[in-house]
Each structure stands twice: as structure tokens, then as C-alpha cells.
Amino acid sequence: MGEKMTCEPSNNVTRLLREAAAGDSSAAGELLPLVYEELRGMARRQLARGPAGNTLQPTALVHEAYLSLVKGGDPGWNGRGHFFGAAAKAMRHILIDQARRKQAVKHGAGLVRTELDHADLPVALNVPDMLALDEALKELEAADERQARVVMLRFFAGLTAEETAEAMGVSLATINRDWRFARSFLHARLRGFDLGEEGAR
């Protein structure tokens, strides 16, 4: 996996994660663009390759990005927490961006470039849902930041409950409680829109 990649960026990220874990907030700030670029780059590379159906899930993308960026060593749970926090933000950004672009096309709002850079990631949510989710998430962020972070890590970074608990340094019980409420809240807010087909169950 990406073995030819130079050591430079990975060392960089590992260093930033360690600094961020040690409380250096500027390191955390520098992290986001690096992770963002890596995720977009990976998405671009995969979309350049295969037909739809063979694509990597966005959540798997995040894990792959982790493997390729942080191969310099284990940054510890706190460092991992910072990484996945940044990755979740980057992923949310990419997907919202993509949804806005699609919406713009639909509404005929000008020409949109169709270069590979702008090819779409295969997301399960439709455009209105994605935008509604973003709005609902902003509401939740204003009300309870921790609950919103749980959603970010679980939904956008694809972490399991255990991984989320570890990344945030809180107990599993807390994560499960937060998730239960946040999920219900977001679903309730999403129901105002056309949800389309429900999941199979």
C-alpha cells in the first residue's frame, strides 16, 4: 500500500499528531489541509481507475489515508483521535462540496467542470439528505459539541463505537448514549425531507 510514497509527508503527519496530542493547537490546524489533500488525492486516484461498484467506501478511504499517512509509527490514542477528527472534517467538507456541486448542476446554475478532480464519491445519501444532514449537524454542534463529534467520527470517519470512545478519550457508555440521541435527532431532522428508499432490514 503506497510503499513508494516518500517518508516525508508521513513523518510530518506523525509529528503533527504527536504535537497535537501534546496540546499544540497549531499542529492540529496544520493537520487538516494535509489530511484533506490526501483524501482527495486518493479519491481521485481511485475514480480514475475503476467503474463504479469497485470503488472504495469513503470510510475505508479514511482508514487507508491513515495507513498511508501515519506509517511512521503509532501516534497513541490521542494522536489517532486528532487524525480521525481531522479526517472526519475533511470528509464532511468533500462530501458537502460534492453535494452542493451536484445541486448546482441540477438547478442549472452555470457550467461545472467535469475533470476527474470533480468526479463523485459513491455516497449512499442523496443530495438533499446530505445537505440536510449538514444543517442538522450544525444545529447539534451548537447545542452539544460532544454529541456532534461522535457523529463526525462515526459517520464521516467510519469509526466503530469503540474506536470513537478511544479517539475521544471518553467511555463507551457515553459514546453509546450520545450516539443514540444524535442519531435520533438527525433522523428526525432528515425526515422533513424526502428520504427515498429506506435501508433494507
Binding site: 470503488t55 467506501q57 469513503p58 470510510t59 462530501l95 459513491p122 455516497v123 449512499a124 445519501l125 439528505d129 444532514l133 457523529v151 462515526r154 459517520f155 464521516f156 467510519g158 442519531r183 438527525l186 433522523h187 432528515l190 428520504l195 427515498g196 428508499e197 429506506e198 435501508g199 433494507a200 432490514r201
Partner: peptide, 14 residues
Amino acid sequence: GGPLDAPLFRGSRG
């Protein structure tokens, strides 16, 4: 089984 239960997993529905 709602949209948030299979995080962004496109293979799982519809």
C-alpha cells in the same frame, strides 16, 4: 437501518 446506521456504505442499500 436508516441513513446513519451504515456509515456512508454505498453497497448496502437501494
